[in-house]
Write a protein that binds this DNA or RNA. Structure first.
Lengths: 299, 299
DNA sequence: ATTAGGTATAATCTGAGTGGATATAAAACA
DNA sequence: TGTTTTATATCCACTCAGATTATACCTAAT
């Protein structure tokens, strides 16, 4: 074991450099200035006797030798990182961590406020960032630690740790002046009005509700497809359309829209907490996901 | 990955501290002074919020938490160490490495001079250290990298890399004035004189030669048992005793003792180079073991 | 040409290590 | 019981590697 302390530091820099192929960004990542990183790169080139990153136009691209280092390098650095994280006590009151949470707009809408309030009370120096949910990049975000936690439904991420957070069903929202606003509606009434459907993937006109209706021989007309639940209340208020909305989210808009129980057994969905197994023993992570779960279950 | 460069350096220090449970030795290992290491220990205690090493009398002993870190810590640091070693070019002419080679006195006797000469010519800044062979600690020495290479016979180290270096047989040495010194001796003459036997383990009076003799119905009298071949020439010179000595070693003493072929088919032994698989791709190690093998085969 | 996006160099500044010494504490010795 | 030995922690003045700020210098795109 003849590696020097300074060389270890250089390896951390190299890892950042390989991640970005960009000196300035790598510098920002590890919290030093660009010239300092440039100097570290020079020392790295000396150490390995290899340019490591060569200019190609105005980009830098990694050499073969540098690429060969990348995987092991990252693995061992992550290992050491996890080591200190897992054995460092976490004190919410003094923490300045940023917790990054991936979720759908539904999740953001129902959890952003409680999380914000919780942090203000328990960890005033910490911050939360809510990131958009994208099933294609979810795992890589957790893997690369650009996000700490995800709240999602029905995702199968075999490598992720998972914990159930809440179960949700739907209610019907409509304009406060809607003819059906006063008392519970019948299934026939429900089907008689135009509907707004929320399809996060965009452009869909058939949802869980339509599948349930079909089983009972009914049918509704979906007039508009929106990419987010957050757009529905405004639209509902200015038309006679109905919209099936997750109950907790509907309750948040009670001031602006009328809210009525589903005239048929509502579809339900489970929202799971998911995270990278690497974070399993990270005290800060343990604390945060515990808080989020508690908040979700208290909704 | 929010670990800082300075923290990585501290981990290297922690590793050394856990290895030695001694600030001064740990400091020496990583090449800083005792006050500097004491300061790093303080920073480590801060980082982990744990004393890590607590005084017990005048020793330091690791806390449970520190112990829990040790294995992963060492593994990842060794991984990073291997990473830079394996991708660093080795230039014999400018190297200041110390190569540590484990071998029996026989190995030392026949190889020390050639290795020394080779280094002087090819790697004048490098040094070689010859360490005593101890079958009980051989593997742990390679594992802990207190030695780089071993030359031994018939050791079975399942995890070690191995390469055959040379095959050796025996000749008979005796005083220059010995009655048998002039011409090849017969087996009967061989058995008529007292013998010196070398038993590295100490105190043995039966060796490979005795087993071979027994098969042909002969027998010799072992008058003295020595722990090292290096002691035999002096003893032989001042008596009429004979000694079976590895041929290459015998040749080294030709100026002082007479040397005669074995009057029966000599036992032979193979000497293998052995090293830790972790060093397999280390350029410096590759170079050195290649040189040693070349020297051994040229003997 | 000029600008935008990036890296490297130059001149200073700073923080951690050094050498050298001391305070302190426990163990070993007498 | 006191004295010596062994070891860690702390102090100081000094040095130096590596940080910073500011600037020069590339290259591609406009």
């Amino acid at each position: 074991m003849d590696i020097k302390q300074t060389e270890l530091g250089l390896l951390l820099a190299l890892n950042a450099l390989l991640d970005h192929e960009n000196v300035s960004l790598a510098a920002k990542q590890i919290g030093i200035t660009q010239p300092a990183m440039s100097a570290q790169l020079k020392r790295l080139r000396d150490l390995f006797n290899d340019p490591l990153l060569v200019p190609s136009g105005r980009r830098l691209v990694a050499t073969t030798r540098a690429r060969a280092l990348q995987n092991d390098l990252r693995a061992h650095l992550q290992g050491l990182n996890a080591l200190v994280r897992d054995h460092t006590v976490f004190d919410p009151a003094s923490s300045e961590t940023t917790f990054r949470l991936i979720g759908t707009d539904y999740v953001h809408a129902v959890l952003a406020a409680p999380v914000q309030k919780m942090l203000a009370a328990e960890a005033p120096g910490a911050r939360a960032a809510f990131l958009a949910f994208d099933p294609k990049t979810l795992w890589s975000s957790l893997e690369a630690e650009t996000a700490d936690l995800a709240l999602a439904t029905g995702m199968s991420l075999p490598e992720a740790k998972r914990q159930s957070a809440l179960t949700e069903d739907f209610q019907v929202i409509m304009s406060k002046t809607h003819p059906l606003a006063r008392q519970p509606m019948t299934l026939e009434e429900f089907c008689a009005f135009p509907h707004i459907l929320v399809s996060p993937e965009g452009g869909g006109f058939i949802g869980a509700t339509d599948r349930v209706l079909k089983e009972t021989g009914h049918k509704r007309r979906v007039a508009i497809s929106l990419p987010s639940f957050l757009l529905a209340p405004a639209l509902v208020s200015s038309s006679d359309a109905l919209c099936m909305m997750p109950t907790r989210l509907a309750k948040l808009h009670e001031a602006n829209v009328a809210c009525s129980p589903s005239p048929f057994p509502s579809p339900v969905f489970d929202v799971d907490l998911m995270w990278h197994p690497r974070r399993q023993n990270d005290p800060a992570h343990k604390w945060f996901r515990g808080q989020v779960r508690r908040l979700a279950q208290g909704l």
